[in-house]
């Protein structure tokens, strides 16, 4: 049983300006498998270690950026309860009309930050899944960076204090860490619905509906090193790392895929428990919080979003 009503962020759809190059990057560099295409040409992908039908969808568009993220909830009854609770919170809910093969009913709404968030309970199992009996760690030798799962995302937008309240009050998540401005307003918050250090994070930002990064989980620090080698070899545009976050304590590299959406490869991180005390970062120390080895901020990391 999940700690909260949500199990994980299980599906993200992103807009890409260079579809072919981006698909090749997710497949050959990150190591995801292409599951197939929707009838309107969107490309579905998943990692080798995921069970659900697909977790990432790339949509060819004139602008790169974020379409939506969908959270898997524990069951149908919870899904209906969350629909009611979301509307009671003040966000009108619709039933998603775009095709996501394998997925059951998806409810969606627009968060105060401008982002579309969806909830679903049912999704078909993928054809290629990890072994279930006497299982090896993998079925086919993982490719590239050997991404294991779509792990979390960081969204930028206005009024994240309200977004945080929604994720806590309605979805039952908790925030292991946060950062406030000197006058006590939320600058950033990390939220989780389980034992992962974060499922989703928000940074306060004037422009709505922008994404800072989406992250894939790698096995360990060695895998981060392997990812760095691929960045060097294939001239991937790196942003920051390899380094460690003090926030969540994960090990990390940030880089951009060929349509300019930032990707993080993330390993480690502490186990979060809802009864543990909350950790606070003051904004004058946030550079060390984000990049523990460097101890400073990078303008590219703060300023670039899609």
């Amino acid at each position: 049983m999940a700690i909260s009503k949500t199990i994980r962020p299980g599906l993200i759809q992103l807009r890409v300006v260079n579809l072919e190059e981006s698909v090749a990057f997710y497949r050959d560099i990150l190591g995801l498998d292409v599951v197939g295409q929707t009838s309107d040409g969107r490309v579905m992908l998943k990692t080798y270690d995921e069970f659900d039908h697909h977790s990432v969808v790339l949509r060819h568009a004139p602008e790169s950026g974020f379409d939506y993220v969908a959270f898997k909830v524990v069951d149908d009854k919870t899904l209906e309860e969350l629909k009611e609770a979301t509307e009671a919170f003040g966000y009108p809910v619709d039933v998603a009309s775009d095709e996501q093969p394998g997925y059951g009913k998806r409810y969606g709404f627009t968060l105060c930050t401008g982002h579309r968030i969806e909830l679903y309970a049912e999704v078909a199992q993928a054809e290629k899944i990890p072994m279930l009996v006497n299982p090896d760690p993998w079925v086919e030798m993982p490719r590239g960076m050997k991404a294991q799962r779509f792990d979390h995302l960081l969204l930028y937008g206005p009024n994240i204090a309200e977004a945080e309240r929604y994720f806590k009050e309605v979805l039952g998540m908790f925030a292991p860490e946060f950062c406030n401005t000197p006058d006590g307003k939320r600058f950033a918050v990390w939220l989780t619905g389980g034992n992962k250090a974060h499922d989703i994070a928000f940074v306060e930002y004037e422009r709505p509906n922008t994404i800072h990064h989406h992250a894939f989980y790698l096995e360990d620090w060695n895998a981060i090193g392997n990812a760095a080698d691929l960045i060097g070899k294939y001239r991937v545009k790196r942003d920051v790392g390899p380094t460690r976050h003090a926030i969540t304590r994960g090990q990390t590299i940030y880089f951009w895929e060929p349509s300019g959406n930032r990707i993080e490869t993330y390993a480690g991180g502490y186990a979060a428990y809802p009864d543990n005390p909350q950790r606070e970062w003051t904004i004058d120390e946030i550079g060390r919080g984000l990049f523990y080895y460097e101890g400073e901020l990078f303008p590219s990391f703060l300023e670039i979003v899609t």
Partner: peptide, 26 residues
């Protein structure tokens, strides 16, 4: 910059010379 045509940070004006666009720009 993102080097992917997505973030817009590397926006420039070319006043002289020939060039070829090889990727889509947001």
């Amino acid at each position: 910059g993102c080097e992917g045509g997505g973030c817009g940070v590397c926006k420039i004006r070319i006043t002289e010379g020939e060039y070829e666009r090889f990727k889509n720009m947001s």
